[in-house]
Design a binder for these strands. Structure first.
Lengths: 137, 137
DNA sequence: CTGAGTGCAAAAGCTTTGCATCTTG
DNA sequence: CAAGATGCAAAGCTTTTGCACTCAG
């Protein structure tokens, strides 16, 4: 439904779009739209929030950045395109990027009959080194 | 932080709360608040949407149901508490429960050095049988 | 009875969109 | 220059909240 229409649409490159891409790619913090807006405005002062939302959507559509589900309701963005996983510490909340994705068997669950699996997301939870040490004491 | 306050708060059981719990537990569709509301109103006609939101939050707090991150912005709920994975259709948003969790190698990423991995969550994404068929046409 | 829970509606986020204007190709 | 992109602000949705009333314990 909301699929890419096979191009009547020509795409132009604008200062705003490159800047927004740059901000997401250089942030390690999985920023949401508001944060991208705040950072980007340091470069283009009269940037509009609407433009940020519009471009984040465009960039996701083009596969240049990626949406990540966070715990809250807001959508966050990730400029790291290589497949990777996250480890989140259940004690302090810190998120560690895991560039190498643990391998797992192609799921053969009967429930997936007829489904086309395109992607997956793996999140690990536990104690980070710091919290683990603290707990021992 | 948002940990259970050691109870000044007494909790009462109301028709509305039990009904909402019942609806989530018996739905296989990972309903969002609106859907819970729609279904629950068949039993309590003048139920209020605000009450649904309030109780969903309470039930999650008590660990009786679980929030699941969906691709959209809305929060969805899951009455299945046993460990399981999800497959979500990227086209229609439908979520399918996968009771059997795919096996994967214990992650050996160097980033995890010193971490104690306690749990993990795997989500699959792709096209459900229905949307897959539609696309082909 | 007392206060947690409810219904209702208003308010508060976050995101999208219409429109006139500006820019890119 | 034509059409995509922007800025601004209004509109849209989902979720939260204030308040008076209700009902469980």
């Amino acid at each position: 439904m909301t699929k890419a229409t096979p191009e009547t649409t020509e795409r132009r490159s604008t200062r705003q779009r490159s800047l927004i891409l740059d901000v997401v790619q250089h942030s390690h913090a999985h920023p949401d739209a508001e944060e991208v807006y705040r950072i980007a405005r340091r470069k283009i002062a009269l940037l509009s929030l609407g433009t940020v939302y519009r471009n984040l959507r465009v960039l996701v559509e083009e596969g240049l950045i990626r949406e990540v589900q966070s715990a809250g309701k807001v959508v966050r963005y990730d400029g790291m395109l290589e497949a990777h996983s996250h480890f989140q510490c259940t004690s302090c909340g810190r998120i560690i990027d895991l560039p190498r994705v643990p391998k797992f068997d192609a799921p053969k669950n009967p429930e997936l009959k007829g489904c086309e699996v395109q992607d997956f997301k793996l999140d690990l939870f536990g104690l980070c080194p710091i919290c683990r040490t603290e707990r021992k004491s």
